[in-house]
Design a protein around this nucleic acid. Structure first.
Lengths: 232, 232
DNA sequence: CGTCTCATTGACACCCTTCAAACGAAGTGG
DNA sequence: CCACTTCGTTTGAAGGGTGTCAATGAGACG
């Protein structure tokens, strides 16, 4: 049925954030059923591979199966703002227009389901429940982005990081430890900070006993309560 | 048919941003037809009056007829982030949940149409075109909020202000002058700056010849091109 | 003309950025 | 198995942009 989707990984990443060596074209793909009730094409992407770029035609909506995806906008001089990290189960790539207004890349190796937009819109037009589901998804993202704006516009580095850790720990089911799949640079670009400030703030939180760092990826949330009040 | 809507202005604003003296309960109201195709209740709000507050039940969706509305979130210590200014024709108050996740206030005296949420949802469930319209509205807002995040996270005060002026001049039809309906404090809280920085940056842009200030509300866009490249 | 509110301007402090170097973990080749 | 390389992270020092505090100025209104 569904053939190769038209949104293909670009030959080489344009941004210094992507490691050239790690980029390989999305390898396997196959037909799978999505929770939205439509068939989609499963596609694999490698670490830092581009899933779609700003300005490209938006033929598909995606759902993450495994791994993590970042959606972001970027300025000519390289400044980047990550709007969201999509975790397994999350949908990304929803667009009003026929062109993507932002880019998406694989934070880790990951598998996503690509749902063609045209049949999705047809189905939504006929099926009220489906339409409502899509709308609810969009509203949910809008709500998250409103909170993100508050973070970016009005919070200190410390509060931003505490909020980020709390948010991730809610979304990644794990008691009091956290395996961060993204780099410090990704975190910085998500929180509107520099990589140095993220690093410094991490160690500051560690010195204050709120967290403990184990390697570059593991964070132990020693004092959830204190973190939560910081994040508020 | 429709009686008094349940979302009433609160007796007194909780925040220092609202001028107590200027707040009066929404006066007149009447039945009107909304472009969405539903009947709604027209309600008037005075300058700085609250339309709904965060946490209140979200019974209605609103459309601005005249005036300007601000939607925002606020922290316990008073830090405020304005997510959007809604101009005539714009819809605000869309929510996934039954409770508002943000507050809305009248920036100027204004008239809005309040559409009850229940019949809107019913209608959307039955009418695909209506559902699509609502979804498209939400997607449009989501796209705007993504750009807003880029502004808040990655741009300088000068770039933020230039972007704001360009954005407003596109939305308020006027050749090369701009009548800003909101205060410097509102602009600051929209751009994630302080009122002093907004003021200083305004005069800086004026000194550089990009704009000219006439009183506190009028801005003459002397060099649109330069402003646009700053805003990019 | 006085009062009130909002905006502007100044001086100073500080948080975060910038630039730079050292460190550490992971992978590679000898 | 161990130097070597590489990439990402951490840490340091210095500077700048924005915030804070405070005073002055300008419209709006009575």
């Amino acid at each position: 049925m569904h053939t190769q989707i038209s949104i293909l990984p670009s030959p080489a990443p344009r941004q210094p954030y992507a490691t050239a060596a790690s980029v390989q074209p999305g390898a396997r793909s196959g037909l799978v059923a999505d929770p939205l009730g439509l068939d989609g094409v499963k596609v694999s992407y490698a670490h830092n591979e581009e899933i779609f770029g700003e300005g490209e035609p938006a033929n598909c909506v995606f759902r993450v199966m495994t791994g993590v995806v970042r959606s972001f906008r970027i300025l000519a001089d390289g400044r980047r703002q990550i709007a969201e990290f999509s975790l397994p189960g999350d949908v990304f790539g929803l667009q009003a227009d026929d062109l993507h207004s932002f880019s998406a890349e694989a934070v880790t190796d990951c598998e996503v389901v690509a749902l063609r937009r045209a049949p999705l819109l047809e189905r939504a037009a006929a099926d009220g429940a489906m339409a409502h589901k899509l709308w609810a998804l969009t509203l949910h993202q809008l709500r998250r982005s409103e909170e993100h704006m508050l973070i970016l516009g009005r919070k200190t580095a410390c509060e931003r990081l505490a909020w980020f850790l709390m948010d991730m720990s809610e979304r990644i089911p794990a008691p009091d430890r956290l395996d961060l799949p993204m780099s410090r640079q990704d975190i910085a670009d998500f929180l509107g900070l520099t990589i140095e400030t993220v690093s410094r703030t991490m160690t500051q939180l560690q010195d204050e006993g709120l967290i403990a760092l184990r390697g570059r990826r593991w964070v132990i949330l020693s004092q959830r309560g204190a973190l939560l009040s910081l994040a508020a």
